[in-house]
Amino acid sequence: MTSQTTRPPRSGRLDGQVVAVLLVLVAALPVVRLLGPGLDAPAFQAWATVFVAIVVQSVPFLVLGVVLSGLISALLSERAVSRLLPRNPALAVPVAGVAGIGLPTCECAAVPVASGLARRGVPSAVALTFLLAAPAVNPAVIVSTAVAFSGRTDMVAARFLASMAVAIVVGWIYVALAQRLPALRLPRIGGPVHSHGGNGRLGAFVGAAWHDFLPAAGFLVVGALIAAAVKVLVPLEIVESVAGQFLLSVVVLAAFAFVVALCSEADAFIAVSLTAFSDTAKLVFLVVGPAMDVKLAAMEAGQWGRQFALQFVPLVLVLATTIACLVGWVML
């Protein structure tokens, strides 16, 4: 029996994604033909303009951020991060948060990587800190946020600090409570640790970059479709009435981030298009999404159990919204 768990070949998954995209395009052709003259309507033209503008502006910088993340992922490893963590959980929590910069990972990989850290003996609080930090503070997210907001350092810094604070505060809460509440500890479930890798560092880089780009680009397109539809179809007076009320706008964008489940490397381009909302409400959207969305909640329930998810998901949502509001109030 070999010591390593056999992983299915990556090419099958990628071929499936390509086939799915082609099927969607083929299915769209008769829809376009049926719409016919409706495609020339001013509303559709406005929607198409907004959609194309978002996608064209964001894709080059999304590629740049993904390449940067791929390089870092190829040079560092999950095992190296676990060795660098201090033995004291309270001290290891902020280190794990910073490790999210050095070992970036997409949302779909964050849960398996956190589980892998827990299996290697890393305390639950530390693994959860990395789970929250890695998708939110990695270089791809920083670059995309800077580009989307036209180099506004205050928004970039506010997103970075708020996301890091959420990860560290949640980690410290679990350090304080996990010993008294066993339900808060991560079960050490078996199975292979998620890996973007291939053969050698070049293979790891190509695998990581390609793995991150496909879902990020897909979520970017979906988000652009939704943002363009909201901008064109929702009456301006409704948007302004919601955006004009601070508490309501924060709740709406937090719920939007949770339900839409955008990729953190693309959500900044969607946030900047929500021009009627305040910077603080946009920051809530940017902080809540990578920390907790419906996709992550389902993955965490499947990985660590429903009881854990019922405690962890509301805690993260409340803390992410509150901390983002505080950081936005101070910095924006």
Rank of each mutant, 00 (worst) to 15 (best):
V170R: 01
A178C: 12
F160V: 08
V166Y: 04
A157N: 05
A158F: 01
A140E: 07
V141I: 10
A176W: 04
A148D: 06
F149Y: 13
F149S: 06
S144K: 07
V169N: 04
P135S: 13
L181Y: 14
F160Q: 02
R152V: 06
T153A: 14
A178D: 14
N138T: 11
V137A: 08
I142M: 11
A133N: 04
I142E: 01
A183R: 15
G151F: 04
M164R: 02
V169Q: 03
A167V: 04
L132V: 10
A178H: 10
A176L: 13
V156F: 01
V137G: 08
G171L: 05
R159W: 00
V143W: 06
N138W: 03
I173F: 12
A176M: 12
M164F: 08
Y174S: 03
A162N: 02
A140T: 10
Y174T: 09
S144I: 12
I173V: 14
V169D: 00
G151M: 00
P182S: 14
V169T: 09
L181P: 11
M155C: 09
S150W: 02
I173T: 13
A133P: 01
W172F: 10
A183T: 15
G171E: 00
P135G: 13
P139M: 10
V166T: 04
A134S: 13
I168T: 09
M164P: 00
F149I: 11
V143I: 15
V170M: 11
A146V: 12
A176T: 13
A148M: 10
T153R: 13
A157V: 06
F160K: 02
I168K: 01
V147H: 10
A133V: 03
P182G: 14
R180W: 13
L161D: 02
A140H: 05
A157M: 11
V156P: 09
S163L: 03
L184K: 04
V169K: 02
A133Q: 02
A148K: 08
I168S: 02
P139Q: 05
A178W: 03
R152T: 13
A133R: 03
A167I: 07
A165G: 09
L132D: 08
S144W: 08
L161V: 11
A162L: 06
A167Y: 03
A162T: 08
L161F: 07
R159V: 01
A167Q: 00
V141H: 12
A133E: 07
A158H: 05
G171I: 06
V175P: 11
F149N: 07
V166N: 01
A176I: 13
P182T: 13
N138F: 11
A165D: 00
S163N: 09
I142H: 05
V170N: 02
M164Q: 10
I168E: 07
A134M: 07
M164C: 03
F149K: 04
A136V: 04
A162S: 14
R185L: 13
V156Q: 00
A136P: 01
S144G: 09
P182E: 08
V156C: 01
A176E: 07
W172L: 15
S150N: 15
S163G: 06
I142S: 04
V169C: 07
A148S: 13
A146H: 12
A165R: 00
S163R: 04
F149E: 01
M164K: 02
V137F: 06
F160T: 04
A134Y: 00
I142T: 12
L132C: 11
A158Y: 00
T145N: 03
L177F: 13
R180E: 11
A167P: 01
V170W: 03
A136G: 09
L184P: 08
A157C: 10
G151E: 06
